[in-house]
Simulated assay, not measured.
Amino acid sequence: MPVEEKTLTAALAVERLRLAEARLARRRQTQCGPSETARAAMRYILERADDGSPATPTEIAEHLGLATASMTGILHRLRGGGLITFQRNPDDGRSKRVVPVDRSADIDEIDPLTARIREFAGGLTEREADHVARFLEAVTEAVDGECL
């Protein structure tokens, strides 16, 4: 069964996106400061701080789909960079909370790419956003299911 041109266009656009993300990940490893995972962790830490419920390392690891051992290394690098600190968790003396050192930091400055993507999404109608979101969720599930 032949692939429709519009379907092929969407599939090729996703492939270009995946290649661009791979190039960005390589650049960030060598030239651009924190890794994508560290940036995602920092976004989550800032969002949780804004909500008044600082996250624990385990919660951050679960949110990002990482092992807690991997998260520990990322958090220690963020702390070494002066971006976060750890506080005793008053609800559980065995755990700690992760808090930003400077809450005046703007999430968009830490991750300007995400800010640009949100700006692009703001130009979509509700229906377009729904279609794009469903399509990208399906692609995400396929990517997550690969090599299991």
Results as ranks from 00 to 15, higher is better:
54 P>L: 07
65 G>H: 07
136 L>I: 09
135 F>N: 06
116 R>I: 10
59 E>N: 03
31 Q>K: 11
127 R>S: 11
38 A>T: 02
120 F>I: 10
81 G>E: 05
116 R>P: 02
127 R>V: 12
50 D>P: 01
130 D>C: 09
47 E>Q: 12
109 E>V: 15
95 S>P: 01
108 D>E: 13
91 D>Y: 05
67 A>L: 08
61 A>N: 05
106 D>C: 09
75 L>Q: 01
112 P>T: 03
114 T>A: 14
34 P>Q: 07
88 R>N: 12
107 I>H: 02
71 M>A: 12
55 A>T: 02
143 V>Y: 13
63 H>F: 08
71 M>Q: 09
64 L>Q: 00
121 A>I: 09
97 R>D: 00
126 E>G: 15
42 M>D: 02
115 A>D: 09
126 E>H: 15
80 G>E: 04
101 V>R: 08
133 A>L: 14
20 A>M: 13
20 A>H: 09
32 C>I: 07
128 E>L: 12
131 H>W: 15
139 V>A: 13
74 I>D: 00
96 K>W: 00
112 P>C: 03
76 H>W: 05
139 V>H: 08
89 N>E: 05
127 R>F: 07
53 S>G: 04
55 A>G: 02
34 P>M: 12
136 L>R: 14
68 T>C: 05
90 P>I: 11
120 F>L: 14
88 R>I: 09
43 R>S: 06
132 V>N: 04
106 D>F: 05
79 R>W: 00
142 A>T: 15
127 R>L: 08
131 H>L: 15
125 T>F: 14
70 S>F: 08
45 I>G: 00
51 D>F: 06
50 D>S: 12
50 D>Y: 04
17 L>A: 15
118 R>A: 12
62 E>Q: 13
136 L>K: 11
137 E>A: 15
39 R>V: 04
45 I>D: 00
112 P>A: 04
74 I>V: 08
120 F>V: 10
37 T>A: 07
122 G>C: 05
106 D>L: 11
54 P>R: 06
35 S>A: 05
96 K>H: 02
94 R>V: 01
36 E>S: 14
